[in-house]
Design a protein around this nucleic acid. Structure first.
Lengths: 215, 215
DNA sequence: CCGATAGCAATATAGTCATACGGTTATAGC
DNA sequence: GCTATAACCGTATGACTATATTGCTATCGG
C-alpha cells in the first residue's frame, strides 16, 4: 500500500497548534488556515486529517481534557508514591486546576475558551461533563479512602463533599485568572487547604495511605 | 435641531438583542446583521448607535454586569427590608449567581460567553474584574456587619472569607450549568448554605440587623 | 415654514472564512 | 519495476462578515 503517516502524531501536531492559537489569540482567532501555518503544514493536510473544523476543535478539546485528567491522576500517583496523606495528595491534584504557572495557565485558557462554546455544542458539552465527572469521581474516591483510613470522619457524604470541593477549586481557578491581583498564589492554595481541612479532619491509622482509585 | 431619539433605549434594544442571540446560539453567532434583525431594525441603524461591533459587545457586557450587580444589590436590600439575618440575606444575593431559572440562566450564559473573550480583550477583562470586585466588596461588607453584629466570630478575615465564598458560589454556578443532573437546585443551595454557615456561626445581638453597605 | 441635522435604510466594498477540488509525490505490496 | 493509493500541496469558490457610503426622511429651532 502507499506511504503511511503517524495519524495520531499528526492529530497531536494540529491540536497543539490549535491550543497555542487559543492561548495566544483566543478561540475566535482559530481558523484552519492559521492552524495550518502554526502547525507548519498546508491547509490541505489539515483537511486530510480533519474532515471539518468542528472535528478539529472537538478533538483538540478532547485531547486537552485527557491530558488534564492525566495530570490529576499523575498528581495522585505521585502523592501516593511519596506516601503523603490523602489530604496532601488531593491538594496537589486539585492545584492542577488552578492557572498557576505557564502550563496550567495555558490549559486553563483553553478549557475556558471551550466553556462558552460547549453551551451550544452537544459534543463539546459531553466531553466537558465527562471530564468534570471524572475529577469528581477521583476526589470522591479519595474521600472514601480517607474515611476508611481515618482522615475523614465517618458520616460525611463523600459525593456531596467531592462536588463542593471541586466546585470551590474551579471557582478559585476562575478568580485567580480574572483577578490575579487579589488572588495571589499563596491565597489560592491556602484557601484550597482550608477547604480540604474541613473534610480531612483526622489522621490516618495505617502507616501507608491506601488511595488507589478503582478506575 | 433634527428629530431626537432615546439613545439609551436604542442601546438597550440592541444589547437585549445581542443577549438573546448569545443565549440562543452563542457569542460566535452574533453578527451585526443578525443583531439588527433580532432587534427589528436595519444594519445601518445599529451602526449609527455603535461605531464598531466591539463597542456593541462591550456595551452589552457592561450592561449585563450592571444588571447583574443590581440584582445582587436588590437581593441585599430585599433581605434587609424583610429583617432577615445577614446570612440569609447573603444567601439570597449569592443565589443570583447560580443559573437557576430562565432569567439567571440567560444571564449566566452571557457572562460565560464573555469570559472566554475577556482573556484576550483588555476592556472586557476590566469590566469583568470590576464586577467581581463589586460582588466581593458587598460580601465583605456583609461579613464585616456580621462581625459587628455577632453573627460572625471576631477574628475572621472578612476579605479572605468573601473571596472564598464568592469563588465557591461561582464554581457552584459553573457546575450547575455543566452538569445540572448531579447538581440539582436543592444540592446547590444546600452547599451554599453550608459554606455560609461556616462563617456565620453566631446570632445577631441587635433585634434588627444592620447591613447597610457603604456604597 | 424652512433648512440644518439626526435618524434611519439600502447597498456597495473589501476581506476572510471553511471547504472543495485537481494535481503531485512517495511508497508498500506485488 | 510497476501500480494503486495514501500523503500532501496550492488554489479556486462561494458564503459571510464588518464596515463604508450614499441618500432619503422627519422634525426641531428659528
Amino acid at each position: 500500500m502507499p506511504r503511511v503517516a503517524d495519524h495520531d502524531a499528526r492529530h497531536g501536531q494540529i491540536s497543539d497548534a490549535v491550543q497555542r492559537l487559543i492561548v495566544r489569540d483566543g478561540l475566535a482567532a482559530v481558523t484552519v488556515a492559521r492552524t495550518a501555518a502554526e502547525a507548519g503544514m498546508s491547509v490541505g493536510l489539515v483537511q486530510h486529517y480533519f474532515t471539518a473544523k468542528d472535528e478539529m476543535l472537538l478533538t483538540t478539546f478532547t485531547r486537552v481534557n485527557e491530558r488534564f485528567t492525566a495530570r490529576v491522576d499523575a498528581a495522585v500517583n505521585r502523592g501516593e508514591a511519596e506516601g503523603l496523606t490523602i489530604a496532601a495528595m488531593l491538594r496537589q491534584a486539585l492545584a492542577e486546576l488552578v492557572p498557576l504557572g505557564d502550563a496550567r495557565r495555558a490549559e486553563f485558557l483553553v478549557r475556558l475558551a471551550f466553556s462558552g462554546q460547549a453551551a451550544h455544542n452537544t459534543r463539546l458539552a459531553a466531553v466537558q461533563r465527562e471530564t468534570l465527572a471524572g475529577v469528581r469521581a477521583r476526589v470522591r474516591q479519595a474521600i472514601d479512602n480517607g474515611t476508611e483510613c481515618g482522615e475523614v470522619d465517618k458520616g460525611v457524604d463523600a459525593g456531596q463533599q467531592a462536588l463542593r470541593i471541586v466546585a470551590f477549586t474551579e471557582g478559585l481557578a476562575l478568580h485567580t485568572h480574572i483577578d490575579p491581583g487579589s488572588t495571589p498564589e499563596a491565597a489560592a492554595l491556602a484557601a484550597l487547604d482550608d477547604q480540604l481541612g474541613r473534610v480531612f479532619t483526622g489522621t490516618c491509622r495505617h502507616h501507608r495511605a491506601q488511595t488507589r482509585a478503582s478506575r
